[in-house]
Amino acid sequence: MDTIQSHSDNKQTMTFSKNVNVYWQETKFEWLKSIRNPAFALPAITFPGLFYVFFGVLMNGHNPQAATYLLCTYGVFGVMGPALFSFGAGLAIERGQGWLDIKSASPMPGGAQVISRLFVSMGFSVLILLSLGGIAASLTDISLTLSQVSLLSVILVLGGLPFCLLGLTLGLSLKAESAPVVINMVYLPMSFLSGLWIPIAMLPSFLQSFAEFLPPYHLSQLALKVVGLDAGGSVAGHVLILALFSGIFYVFAVLASRKKAN
């Protein structure tokens, strides 16, 4: 009775190249979607540069060391933005619209959604670092070797990962209307308390020790290590703590997506 005849054409499989194509298309259109959205792209790309011009160039009176220090910390501030907002706000809004329901009913591989946003965040990180680099090269007396610049870029672009995962958790748990506000309330204080806006040494000592518990602090220390301006912690220690945060945020994200599925 309850049998369904098997049609030979019912088994549909995707070839490897078609599978790769899904990720490529998803990333391409995620990029177009984001870069065309001024509410997302404009602050993400211009704010770190504007902040850097103000604090790193105009306010510091041609001190190359301070300019170098702030280039690293505003680099961290820059890559956090698209990571938190693309994943957090973008996902929460599309979820609220019911758009993600359409996607989840389609055979889109679940990973494509995450991977595409990851690449888009990294793409934005590159644009932000280019703008910061351009400002530093033309308006300050910073001198960095090519290998320092390359290493700094790699650290900062890859360092966006824990913030992507944090954004993913927030995007899966927050309501669309409140997501941008909540994410700003995480993003801005966390940046300040990690010493990204003004050097950590200028903060009161209890805030300095609190910074140890914040992931941006550890990413900024890794970046500062490249230019020899870090506080002296070990590379392995910072990497381990960032990996630990990534793990925790990943578990939270999985829990949030399970909760959503029920």
Binding site: T15, V22, Q25, L32, S106, M108
Partner: peptide, 22 residues
């Protein structure tokens, strides 16, 4: 659905969804 992502064109939405299927 209340809304679709606003900054994609009709043809882009369709091309993307086509890529999901064998």
């Amino acid at each position: 659905v209340a809304n679709l992502p606003e900054t994609l064109k009709i043809k882009e939405h369709i091309r993307l969804f086509q890529s999901y299927y064998p």
